[in-house]
């Protein structure tokens, strides 16, 4: 009885909130600011690592467009996924499930910002980077959110391509071209994504199972997921070092990527071995937290090396790309 009253009170609050309209903070939350930060950061790394310098004003404009494009994709994702977000612990407090922002407002907000970000990037910087940004938003919303997420356990493997694009867009903004070098940065994030999200899914599998999202632990089981995490981590560790051999990273980067990659494998092995009780829960949570730190530090080292010339700059390339 008390539950029903509480539920009715929550519904009333949500309805009242919807009538009042969202506050500015609710619209900012629709942009997924934490994801946006990592997107801008990796985009900046791609831009700085590029062989041609971009004017600082144009660089800021490009990063602003990339940030807004990422936020717009996040808003459209929250609009489409509002039904499942409402039933998942991690996402129940998002603005749409809480009733702070209407579905129609969120979709309009996302579309306007998407078009604005792409047009501004094209007009202010170049149309190659704008086309890549448009493709990334379209892929994330149309392919990942609307199709893959609810239909296959490979959802985040393929969908990870969207999250891996910012360094390529940053590179294209600086050079008006795409070579194999930014594709290596793309591949690092692409291979990093599955262990990152599967580590999260391991300790949130109940949430995903309840709403019918076929994440790997729900469909293939935890043992298979832990094995897959380990395989991807073993590929990621050496892949993270590749920029040092193609003229993108220096000695400092090589050392940092080797240590960070080895630690990634250590966390993945622990996640693979600890399969029971609290220790398994803790191992997957630690892997998830470390994966965020790994990507941040890897790109931070690349950024610092290029921006400040630390470590003597990039090593001579073994392969020219």
């Amino acid at each position: 009885m008390a539950d029903i009253s509480q539920s009715q009170a929550q519904s009333y609050d949500a309805a009242l909130d919807a009538t009042l309209g969202g506050d500015v903070g609710d619209y900012l939350a629709l942009l997924k600011p934490r994801v946006m930060f990592l997107v801008v950061f990796t985009g900046l790394a791609g831009m700085v690592a590029a062989p041609e310098a971009i004017h600082p004003v144009l660089a800021i404009a490009a990063l602003l467009c990339i940030a807004v494009g990422s936020g717009a994709a996040g808003a459209l994702n929250m609009w489409y996924d509002a039904d499942i977000d409402a039933r998942m612990t991690r996402t129940a407090s998002r603005p749409i499930p809480r009733g702070r922002v209407e579905h129609s407002e969120a979709v309009a907000f996302g579309i306007v910002l998407s078009i604005g970000a792409v047009m501004c990037l094209g007009l202010m910087v170049n149309w190659l980077s704008a086309a890549l940004l448009a493709g990334t938003i379209g892929f994330y919303v149309g392919i990942y959110t609307m199709w893959l997420k609810r239909s296959t356990p490979q959802n985040i493997v393929i969908g990870g391509a969207a999250g891996a694009m910012p360094p390529v867009i940053g590179w294209a903004a600086a050079t008006d071209s795409v070579t194999l070098a930014p594709i290596v940065l793309f591949l690092i994030i692409f291979i990093w994504t599955p262990p990152h999200f599967w580590a999260l899914a391991l300790y949130r599998s109940g949430d995903y199972a309840r709403v019918g999202v076929p994440m790997m632990p729900v469909v293939a089981g935890e043992a298979a997921t832990r094995r897959q995490i380990l395989i991807y981590s073993l590929i990621l560790a050496p892949l993270g070092c590749v920029p040092a051999f193609i003229g993108l990273g220096g000695v400092f980067y090589l050392a940092a990527s080797a240590v960070l990659g080895a630690l990634f494998v250590v966390f993945a092995v622990r996640c693979w071995r600890e399969r029971e009780g609290d220790t398994s829960y803790r191992a997957s949570k630690q892997l998830f937290a470390y994966s965020v730190l790994y990507l941040f530090l890897l790109f931070a080292v690349l950024l610092v090396e290029h921006a400040f010339g630390i470590g003597g700059g990039p090593l001579p390339p073994l392969w020219t790309v």
Binding site: L16, T19, G21, G22, D23
Partner: peptide
């Protein structure tokens, strides 16, 4: 009405 409330006006102004 909710649309006449101070909270509604405050949020609209902030937006």
């Amino acid at each position: 009405d909710d649309v006449d409330s101070d909270e509604f006006k405050r949020r609209r102004r902030r937006r």
